[in-house]
Design a protein around this nucleic acid. Structure first.
Lengths: 100, 100
DNA sequence: AATAAAAATTTAAAAATATCAAAAGACCTT
DNA sequence: AAGGTCTTTTGATATTTTTAAATTTTTATT
């Protein structure tokens, strides 16, 4: 039995910020690319999305800043991956709901 | 074994729109109020949130328009409720993730 | 040190959102 | 049909977000 917890104003704010980070077509696509612990470089994502490198980096920065992704630098490249696997469930859940 | 489906551009767009609708502190709070098929009137929600009635109506309109809520008019009042129960999971999921 | 590759930042302009206050609509009761 | 209550819409303003281009930073290689 899980006790229903009322969210505090600052929790609402943070939850909204994380969702806002995800709520963008390109950023949803990015999350879709990052399967099971897989990580991709900025250039790889930029090419998959077909948008400017700087725009891609900007989107990745937002996702990282809001706790959706983590990054790891390896030489010249920066690899991004999901911080929480279950965030993919959000996409699936929304896809499911919007279909009906 | 579930086949991984790539989201089409228009699906990405709709998913983003639904998430964008949810991604606002007040609107997350609204979803939090609407337990298990429960429905609340605009005035009730407006009083719980402590924001302008017209602003409340505006937020509810966005949530309805994007398929998060449904409404039912009963006399002078309009009652709003969740369209999909599992949308609450999104909030729980995000709350969980942001905590770590 | 100079070059090259990859990523991040800055800048500027356009587009989208949020908010309150006021006006308009819808619905009941008398 | 008049008045009152509840809701939606509209108008105006302020803020935020998105995007591409240009610049800068970081790292490796020559």
């Amino acid at each position: 039995m899980i006790e229903k917890l009322k969210l505090q104003p600052d929790q609402l704010e943070r939850a909204a910020n994380m969702l806002k980070a995800i709520a963008h077509p390109m950023r949803i696509a990015i999350i879709g690319f990052l399967e099971e612990g897989e990580s991709l470089s900025v250039t790889q994502i930029h090419e998959k999305l077909g948008i400017e490198q700087s725009t891609t980096s900007h989107h990745l920065g937002i996702l990282k800043d809001k706790g959706v992704l983590v990054s790891r630098r390896d030489g010249k490249k920066t690899y991004y991956s999901l911080k929480h696997e279950n965030l993919k469930n959000i996409i699936d859940c929304v896809s499911m709901c919007e279909a009906s």
